[in-house]
Simulated assay, not measured.
Amino acid sequence: MNYTLHQLEIFHRIAKLKSVTKASEELFLTQPAVSIQLKKFQEQFKIPLFEVVGRKIYITEFGEEIALAAASILEEVRAINYKALSFQGELAGKLKISIVSTAKYAMPFFLADFIKENSGVDLIMDVTNKAEVIRALENNNVDFAMVSTLPKKLKINSIKLMENRLHLVGGKDYTHSGKYISNTNFEELPLIYREQGSATRNAMERFIASQKISTYKKMELTSNEAVKQAVIAGVGFSIMPLIGIKNELKNGDLQIIPVKKLPIISNWNLIWLSSKNMSVIAKEFKNHIETSKDRVMDLHFNWFDKY
């Protein structure tokens, strides 16, 4: 047999994702290139690794066994690479971070220079809702988390990164009179909520309750992007983080609707368990954040002041 590590990686991703298209996206390859390597890999075996039914790919029992072996081999290869880099005096290993979905608009900017300067560091970043982020932190599955609301039941350390501002947002066709919309007008707006467990949803509900506004829920969506597209389409209105709507405000697809007591202001924080036995990579990343966060804010988020 004469298969390559590249082919093992491709088959492992396809087996994991059950999709050639998704595997090609994760590997930053074209779909034809992935399909060609998959075919060459299959030619090494007399037994089918997969079956295609309609447009779906199904991994055979034999294929699942090969995918498990591939995962083990690839992990060993990564370990060899880490060891080689370590002996050369470079950082090498995994950095695991869990972030709430809206933080995806900010965290890459705080990570970029660190990843560029340390090619031996493999970043694993899970993007989910607040409840899942806190669970990952509590179970010690990650080195760091990025949240806008600090968990009360965990002993943590934190670094404040930047402000998180939440505004009432509507589509481009909405019009109102006066400096602020009235509570009566607010109550007439069909509202779009994030799912249960979302920090944005919690903040939105607390604000509405504090102002004693009687509203009705138009729909509930499970991502900030989905909410944003629904608001752009004119389906409804929502209280959304400013950080995720920069381009839409600039293009005029969305507008901030002025409401008394808004925006809601909190802070984005990088957090970790106080009891965490940090790896060398985690310690270096923490130091990097402490020394670079102000520069990142000045460089990438000075547009906040316009709103």
Score class of each variant (00 low, 15 high):
residue 244 G to P: 00
residue 126 D to I: 13
residue 36 I to E: 11
residue 43 E to K: 14
residue 109 F to N: 04
residue 286 K to A: 12
residue 211 Q to V: 14
residue 286 K to Y: 10
residue 267 N to C: 07
residue 33 A to H: 11
residue 92 A to Q: 04
residue 230 A to T: 04
residue 97 I to G: 02
residue 60 T to L: 10
residue 98 S to W: 10
residue 236 G to R: 08
residue 12 H to I: 00
residue 195 E to Y: 03
residue 39 K to V: 04
residue 183 N to Q: 11
residue 142 V to L: 06
residue 197 G to N: 02
residue 100 V to T: 13
residue 156 I to E: 06
residue 55 R to I: 05
residue 261 K to T: 14
residue 249 L to K: 02
residue 56 K to C: 04
residue 19 S to Y: 07
residue 24 S to G: 05
residue 178 G to Q: 07
residue 46 K to T: 11
residue 249 L to E: 02
residue 22 K to T: 03
residue 56 K to W: 12
residue 61 E to F: 05
residue 254 L to K: 05
residue 105 Y to I: 03
residue 275 S to C: 06
residue 305 D to E: 11
residue 78 R to W: 11
residue 68 L to H: 14
residue 240 M to K: 06
residue 37 Q to R: 15
residue 59 I to G: 08
residue 145 A to K: 01
residue 157 N to T: 04
residue 179 K to N: 07
residue 138 E to D: 15
residue 2 N to G: 12
residue 62 F to W: 01
residue 146 M to A: 15
residue 72 S to L: 06
residue 4 T to E: 05
residue 124 I to A: 05
residue 82 Y to V: 09
residue 137 L to P: 09
residue 106 A to T: 05
residue 238 S to P: 05
residue 277 N to R: 15
residue 150 L to K: 10
residue 202 N to K: 13
residue 145 A to R: 02
residue 79 A to I: 10
residue 245 I to Y: 04
residue 280 V to W: 14
residue 85 L to M: 11
residue 34 V to F: 08
residue 255 Q to K: 15
residue 109 F to V: 01
residue 296 V to Y: 03
residue 62 F to Y: 11
residue 76 E to N: 13
residue 279 S to R: 06
residue 163 E to W: 04
residue 18 K to P: 01
residue 53 V to F: 10
